[in-house]
């Protein structure tokens, strides 16, 4: 693994991402459509924090699958995966792409979260806990998402496969994230130690992805 190569892969991803805006645009529009759909259907009726937290994470999960599944797909389709293989080692590519995934998911959340708060008139009693929960959740999603994207590239039937594969893997992050987000919305007694299991599973996912990626790539 090489820091400079990771940065170069990241720069390449960012340039490609900015040049072909379709992926990020579809991710944002998917999030907006899902939000509008839920908000319209509920007609502004007041919701409990646990329902709101669940809705928020469902949108985050499905919107991220719309963008993340293309991490290796575009290169596989245009036949440039071999060039990438020649240029950098597996670990630099994995971490370069993972950081790119995290950046695009953070951009998505920067748009999604305020829109969600406005549309659902959602209370946020503990903003720092909410932000940390979302950051830890996104780290897990991008870590597992990058590896699962590499797996699903090999598949002949792709539609829906990515979310089917990703959901069970990120569930240990998803469930505590919903609990913590709900607590951060409602306020009251929250200790930051509740974030530790999430952080631990993020670390496990990153290490496992790093080990397993070598087997897929080589």
């Amino acid at each position: 693994m090489n820091g400079i190569k990771i940065l170069t892969v990241l720069r390449k991803e960012l340039t490609a991402g900015l040049r072909h805006r379709a992926a990020s645009a579809s991710m944002l529009m998917f999030a907006l459509t899902a939000l509008a759909c839920m908000s319209l259907a509920l007609g502004g009726s007041p919701l409990e924090p646990n329902v709101l937290a669940a809705l928020l994470w469902i949108v985050i999960f499905f919107a991220s699958t719309v963008g993340l599944d293309r991490i290796f797909e575009d290169e596989a389709a245009s036949g440039t995966l071999t060039t990438l293989k020649v240029y950098a080692d597996a670990q630099s590519i994995l971490f370069g792409k993972m950081i790119y995934a995290l950046i695009s998911l953070s951009a998505l959340s920067t748009f999604l979260l305020p829109t969600f708060i406005v549309l659902f008139d959602c209370p946020v009693a503990e903003p720092p806990v909410m932000l940390l929960t979302i950051v830890f959740g996104l780290i897990g999603l991008s870590g597992a998402g990058t590896l699962v994207a590499a797996l699903s590239t090999a598949a002949s039937v792709k539609s829906g496969l990515f979310s089917i594969l990703l959901f069970p893997i990120v569930l240990p992050i998803f469930l505590p994230a919903i609990n913590l987000t709900s607590a951060a919305m409602a306020g009251g007694e929250i200790s930051l130690t509740m974030l530790i299991p999430m952080l631990l599973f993020d670390a496990i996912l990153l290490v496992a992805s790093s080990i397993l990626f070598d087997y897929i790539w080589n």
């Binding site: 597992a144 590896l147 699962v148 797996l151 699903s152 090999a154 598949a155 002949s156 039937v157 792709k158 496969l161 089917i164 594969l165 069970p168 893997i169 569930l171 240990p172 299991p197 599973f201 496990i204 996912l205 496992a208 992805s209 397993l212 087997y215 897929i216």
Partner: peptide
């Protein structure tokens, strides 16, 4: 589903092995 979706035998074996090991990580949590 992943196995059914991959046609090439060697690739199928590789990706399903990786998925099997990745999913086993969730067991301690569950």
């Amino acid at each position: 589903t992943l196995r059914a979706a991959v046609n090439d035998r060697r690739t199928r074996a590789k990706v399903s092995a990786v998925y099997s090991l990745l999913s086993v990580l969730t067991v301690p949590f569950l």
